[in-house]
Design a protein around this nucleic acid. Structure first.
Lengths: 137, 137
DNA sequence: CTGGATCCCAATAGATACTG
DNA sequence: CAGTATCTATTGGGATCCAG
């Protein structure tokens, strides 16, 4: 019954994760939602790395299918949509935290944009709790 | 002096990590070394997912440049090489562990090949210590 | 206007066959 | 065993077009 997801159906949990996250953009989109609080297509387009419109649309659709992202109409602005992380998406917080710690160790120099590393160093649990609560740390 | 690595030089630590790991194969190669103990080109080729030869060669070269993997001549077999994780590569252990835990939560069904999830659940610290020590858990 | 589809084209990733 | 060569498929950028 296990839905065959992607390319390699090896039964390895690392491969399962990489089927969803193993590309240049998916995790950056998740980061934009978790860390920067981006909630709209427009806000995601203006991320730090400059994703293009077709890729963003495609990845959002895929992430929605994978249960990472939810899409709803904006209650206050009927012509807009709101994207949010699901519980499954927010549960990636520890993965993001470990990636940031690793980068911080080996790429100490540039960490300019986020300040995330410092926040994690001060109180890692608090950062994860924020993300899990759907708030930006 | 920060060497510009890859595509997006945004200064975000997540992006730094993804520049090295954000593709379908790099982290699987690292997993094969860390978890399965693969040390040769041939052993890596026979991983669970079936990487093709050119991709493996290219990724190994890149991972070596990025300081994740080291390549040395096999002392016992002069015509063979041995690939190993560097400290930087082994320090990805927590990232792999978090990915496995996440997959285990949302893809409980298939975890057949590794048994890694169970080991992590029994003693996470021990698994990470193994990998950091260059031993397979 | 926001959100997204589409087309064109360049660049990368990848499978297979072959080589020292 | 450890790759290279070749060829095809997929990805991605950028502009533009389209719908609500």
């Amino acid at each position: 019954m296990t839905e065959t997801h992607g390319k390699y159906d090896s039964g390895c949990p690392v491969a399962y994760a990489l089927d969803i996250l193993g590309d240049r953009w998916s995790l950056l989109i998740i980061r934009d939602m978790a860390v920067r609080g981006a909630q709209t297509y427009g806000a995601l387009l203006e991320g730090w790395e400059g994703i293009s419109t077709n890729i963003l649309a495609q990845r959002l659709k895929q992430l929605e299918q994978d249960g990472i992202v939810s899409k709803t109409r904006d209650p206050e602005n009927r012509r807009s949509f709101r994207y949010a992380l699901t519980a499954k998406g927010r549960d990636l917080a520890p993965v993001i935290v470990e990636l940031v710690l690793w980068s911080g160790k080996y790429n100490a120099a540039d960490n300019a944009m986020t300040g995330l590393l410092e926040k994690i160093r001060v109180d890692r649990a608090a950062v994860e709790a924020c993300i899990r609560a759907g708030k930006t740390p």
